[in-house]
Amino acid sequence: MDSAARLPELDQIPQDKSQTKDVKRKAISSPYFHRLQRKHFLMFDVLPVLGVILAGIMAFYIPVSGVDIGLFIAFWALTGIGVSVGYHRYFTHRSFKARPAVAVTLTILGSMAGQGALLSWVAMHRRHHELSDQPGDPHSPNLQGPGFKGLIKGLVHSHFTWMKEHDYPNVAYYAPDLIRDPLIAKTARHYYTWVILGLVAPAILGGLLSQSLWGVVSGFLWGGAVRMFVVGHIIWSINSLLHRFGTRPYQSRDHSRNGGLFGLFTFGESWHNNHHAFPESPSFGLQWAAFDPGYWFIRGLSLVGLTWDLRVPTVQRRTSRKKRNVQTQQ
Rank of each mutant, 00 (worst) to 15 (best):
G70P: 05
N239V: 07
L42I: 12
H255F: 14
F267V: 10
H129V: 10
L241M: 05
F245K: 00
S218I: 06
S3Y: 15
K149W: 05
V46C: 03
G51Y: 03
A4I: 15
R38P: 08
L7T: 09
R38T: 12
Q15I: 11
G51T: 01
S212E: 02
F148E: 06
G232Q: 00
M43Q: 04
F267D: 03
F96Y: 12
N258Y: 13
S29H: 11
V217E: 00
T319N: 12
P48S: 04
N258S: 13
P176K: 04
D11E: 11
S29W: 14
A172C: 12
G206T: 10
S132M: 09
I204H: 09
L71G: 00
R99W: 11
K26G: 11
G70C: 03
K322D: 00
D2M: 11
G145A: 11
L242P: 00
I73T: 06
G223A: 10
H157E: 05
P100D: 08
I53F: 14
A203C: 09
Q330H: 04
W222K: 08
A277N: 07
L303R: 06
G56L: 02
E9N: 13
L47T: 10
G154E: 10
Q144W: 11
P138I: 06
F96K: 05
R38K: 10
G82V: 05
K24G: 06
I69P: 11
G223S: 06
D133N: 13
A4M: 15
G206S: 07
H243N: 12
I28C: 10
P182K: 13
R321M: 07
G246W: 11
K26T: 08
H93L: 01
A290R: 06
Y250F: 14
R324Y: 04
A203D: 06
D181Q: 12
L208P: 05
R318C: 02
S111K: 07
K153E: 10
Y32E: 15
A289D: 13
T307L: 11
R227H: 04
P282G: 10
I235R: 01
Q144H: 14
R127V: 04
Q316W: 02
W214V: 14
A123K: 04
P293M: 01
S95V: 03
G305L: 07
F229C: 01
S111M: 09
H139V: 13
L208H: 08
P249Q: 13
V226P: 00
H34L: 13
T193M: 14
A201I: 13
F229P: 00
G215V: 13
H88A: 08
K97S: 08
A225H: 09
F75K: 01
R248H: 02
S320A: 15
W288P: 12
F72H: 06
V304R: 13
W194G: 12
L303S: 09
G82N: 08
G70Q: 11
G260Q: 05
H243L: 00
